[in-house]
Design a protein around this nucleic acid. Structure first.
Length: 550
RNA sequence: GCGCCAGUAGCUCAGCAGGAUAGAGCAGCAGCCUUCUAAGCUGCGGGUCAGGGGUUCGAAUCCCUUCUGGCGUGCCA
């Protein structure tokens, strides 16, 4: 916001001075206060192409900048940086515009309505969602919300792997448990089967509804029946877990349905037409190595069944057909090897491979009393998303998951997430919000809260802490754009923590409702009202609640 | 072996897209409630940005290389 104003101004000057300006310059907020509120490297960057020294060039630009009233001071520093010290009036104007924007603040048309498909979670419907899925859900959903806020047209999708091997094994696992319940000796439960308790629960449920009738069906029909039953149950369970987590999807796409629509054959024929398939050892292969993959991949196995890859590729093609220009897949850490073949297929079929963007989330390690919590999927010992949410709550879980950048391992400290003090960043931020609400409430009760805020009330805000907060508040729109563009939601939690810290410090140092000056009180109440609104937007974008009382 | 990701304070992590003397929180030590929520605030110490080379006015950031850790490398999904 402010950066854009400064950028435009500099650009105007550079053009007016007839300077060559091929290279990009930046506006940044310096780490040190003495370097101003903002600074630019424009003179450093453009010196060479204008055949002059950075300091001389900075001097030329500075002369023009000084003509403006927006700046309290502009100066040259170091090797040729130009530092800006903004006037309080400029900050006050911006603050007022934030107040007027209300919940619309930070919204923009940056994304130009570009249709973006975010696919995430897409877990196998063979068990409860685990914590990596939870991370994906929090990450994908927050990214969705932020992208939408800055003018993209994103959609969330969950791809259901309801066909194929894993599902067969699921059905078999349920059948075994069912036989067990009905008193049959099944011996040792097979190694590959699903060992989780939830399989027993499924079997119990089926038993209480249908009992032995299940086994009156012929084998083939019985397996279909079991599959259908288990899938719908588990899918519903997953959907509920996500809903409790505040995550919904615009679309649930079933692999089985895709297969029935004949897309598998289509994809095979496309690849064949592009002359990218061949037969070997009774299987049909895709020569993905021609397009950068490590090895060729099987499309149709020697037993005539299809690999996971084919319907998944078909699914991706439907995304393009539905008009999405960017396909973002959010994957867990165990899918690295899968990307080259997808990209290879895009190339083979003459689609721009850059349409496909993969974000990898690294694994999540749970820690309890400094000890890593061991999980084992086969033994059925996984900490599920529901477990986590019931222990630490939705707010802490969502917050912790987006607080780290995607491609870093996430050490999830369960105790920290449950703590209710300033060590826990979620509470730290929420507490700042609740404090503001409390002050506003009290001000209203004491009849010092103005009926309507007016812009000129802000003139009283000149303390450095106040100006710094205004600057921080003004950063949000640029930040949201950067988050959407670089797919880095974690920067929002950083921002919120910084803002909360600024407020807590301010609160400790200054009295907001003061008997001495009514005008100052009004100004400060307006300021915290705006902080509240901005914090609310942040919480909303993260899917974390903003409590008015704690 | 090959591929992907990571390595920043004792610990957990930021570092705004190449900028000025690298920042928080926690842990440690010392303080602050008769005052709008102490679920808070203030002060002090703490670094070979894994090592080495390169690119340039300038590198934690970009390139090369070595080391360490995690993950992947199915006719599983």
């Amino acid at each position: 916001m402010i950066k854009q104003i400064l950028r435009d101004h500099i650009f105007q000057i550079v053009t007016a001075l007839n300077l060559s300006h091929d290279r990009e310059f930046i506006i940044e907020t310096p780490t040190k206060d003495e370097f101003g509120d903002y600074s630019t490297n424009v003179a450093l960057v453009l010196a060479k192409e204008n055949k002059t020294s950075p300091v001389k060039l900075a001097d030329m630009i500075l002369k023009e900048l000084k003509k403006s009233k927006h700046y309290k001071k502009v100066e040259i520093a170091g090797p040729g940086f130009i530092n800006f010290f903004l006037s309080p009036t400029m900050y006050q104007n911006i603050l007022w515009s934030i107040f007027e924007a209300q919940n619309e603040y930070g919204k923009s048309t940056y994304g130009n309505g570009e249709k973006i498909l975010l696919e995430f979670v897409s877990a196998n419907p063979t068990g409860p969602l685990n914590i990596v899925s939870a991370r994906a859900a929090a990450f994908g959903d927050t990214l969705y919300r932020i992208m939408k806020h800055v003018g993209f047209d994103p959609a969330r999708e969950f791809y259901i792997n309801d066909a194929g091997n894993q599902v067969d094994i699921l059905a078999e696992s349920v059948e075994l448990r069912l036989r067990e319940i009905q008193g049959e000796k099944i011996g040792e439960f097979p190694y590959e089967a699903y060992h989780g308790e939830y399989v027993k629960h499924l079997a119990q449920k089926l038993n209480s509804v249908e009992g032995v009738r299940v086994f009156m069906l012929p084998e083939k029909d019985r397996m279909e029946h079991l599959k259908e039953f288990a899938l719908s149950e588990l899918l519903e369970m997953q959907r509920l877990s996500l809903e409790k987590f505040g995550v919904t999807f615009e679309g649930w796409v079933s692999e089985k349905t895709l297969r029935m629509e004949g897309v598998v054959e289509e994809v095979l024929s496309y690849l064949a037409e592009a002359d990218c398939t061949y037969e070997k050892e009774d299987a049909i292969w895709f020569c993905s190595t021609k397009f950068g993959d490590d090895k060729d991949r099987v499309l149709m196995k020697s037993d005539g069944s299809i690999t996971y890859f084919v319907p998944d590729l078909a699914y991706h093609l439907t995304k393009i057909q539905r008009g999405y220009s960017k396909l973002i897949d959010i994957f867990g850490p165990d899918h690295h090897g899968y990307v080259p073949r997808l990209k290879a297929a895009f190339k083979a079929l003459n689609y721009d491979e850059n349409m496909l963007e993969i974000i990898f989330l690294q694994q999540v390690n749970l820690f309890e009393s400094g000890e890593r919590v061991k999980m084992s999927k086969r033994a059925g010992k996984i900490v599920t998303m529901d477990d986590l949410v019931s222990v630490v709550g939705k707010d802490a879980a969502r917050y912790f998951f987006i607080a780290r950048k995607a491609n870093a391992h996430l050490n999830f400290d369960l105790e920290l997430a449950m703590k209710k003090n300033n060590e826990n960043p979620v509470y730290y931020c929420q507490y700042a919000y609740a404090r503001i609400c409390s002050i506003l409430k009290k001000a209203k009760k004491d009849k010092v809260l103005p009926k309507a805020f007016k812009e000129d009330m802000l003139a009283k805000l000149v303390k450095p802490e106040e100006l710094n907060m205004m600057q921080k508040l003004a950063e949000l729109p640029d930040l949201l754009v950067a988050i959407a563009e670089y797919r880095e939601p974690h920067r929002l939690t950083n921002y919120l923590e910084e803002l909360a810290a600024m407020f807590h410090r301010y609160y400790a140092k200054y009295q907001i409702v003061s008997e001495k000056s009514k005008d100052l009180t009004k100004a400060r109440l307006l300021l915290i009202q705006i902080i509240k609104e901005v914090m609310f937007i942040c919480f909303e974008l993260m899917g974390v609640s903003a409590p008015e009382k704690m």
